[in-house]
Design a binder for these strands. Structure first.
Lengths: 165, 165
DNA sequence: TATTGTTATACTCTATAACTATA
DNA sequence: TATAGTTATAGAGTATAACAATA
């Protein structure tokens, strides 16, 4: 874990001075908030022995066995070789299994095990707790608004493999 | 640049299926949107030969010469050793200079040169263009709302060195 | 005794290219 | 001829520890 993270928590102030112009940019706020959230998520999930990216993969695979490893790569912004490594590890821990896809024997069907589903449920609970803490300054309505706005920003930017149409 | 990025743009769909549960989480939306924005920012700034982190440092230093390198580390979520490398590079290109701080001779005063100010102005324009494109799906009011919400989330999480009180 | 900046170094993560098997 | 997954390897990025100068 980065040394910057823990130090930051201790020296946290209230609101930045006007001179720090980046803080006025929605883009930088998005970047900075995501960095903080990523750190907290990684720390919190470490308590149950799961990396954030592993949680992402488990969660995506839980949606159905139809996502190829390359789909996961595009969806989760992970290099294809990183996906291999993550799935190797998840398979080693018996959270999921690779089966051949009969429809296209180059691809794998990724299927969760019961242990995988249990781990995912645990991680999902942690994720909710992290969000509750991280977005704690916002009311429930405001959190919905934030989610809608970010959803709109992301609209049209998801890979085709997970889209309805 | 990640291969996932360019591929993603080409295969972009509209809105994720319900089965991709992560897409319903404000936390994951924040994470994913920031990844995309970071990629686009890096690509766009590369056109003028500047890294995103270099832009961040230039912008923070422009606010005043009172931020130490460790302040920058905490503020920008960069390891202290990374800050040294970034400033080395910016100094080599004569965008800024290190002066001894007479008040505390362990610290440096980081001062922008005219060339640094010019580069910053260029980068700032690029940044505005990136934001205009990235948040293009939102109205001006909605963009303000997003900025306010993220600002509230970040409130109390900035390092003391850039805070007013 | 603690802190700032620095260096050297180890480590992790990511990207590149090549290969196998399938289509 | 192209694609999915894999491997090996190179390269970039990050963290760790130690040091000099200063407080």
């Amino acid at each position: 874990m980065a040394r910057t993270a823990s130090t930051q928590a201790k020296t946290a102030g209230s609101v930045p001075r006007q001179e720090f112009l980046l803080a006025a940019r929605p883009g930088y706020l998005l970047h900075k908030a995501a960095m903080l959230l990523d750190e907290q998520a990684e720390t919190s999930l470490a308590a149950i022995g799961i990396r954030a990216r592993e949680f992402f993969v488990l969660s995506a695979v839980a949606g159905g066995p139809d996502l190829s490893q390359q789909d996961l790569s595009r969806l989760l912004n992970l290099d294809p070789t990183t996906v291999v490594a993550v799935i190797d590890e998840l398979e080693r821990r018996e959270y999921l299994g690779r089966r051949r896809n009969p429809a296209d024997r180059r691809r794998h069907l990724l299927v969760l095990t019961d242990a995988g589903r249990t781990a995912l449920a645990e991680a999902d609970e942690k994720a909710s707790a992290i969000e509750a803490e991280f977005f704690g300054a916002l009311s429930s309505d405001e959190r919905d608004t934030l989610r809608d706005l970010l959803g709109r920003v992301m609209s049209g930017r998801w890979p085709a493999s997970i889209c309805a149409s």
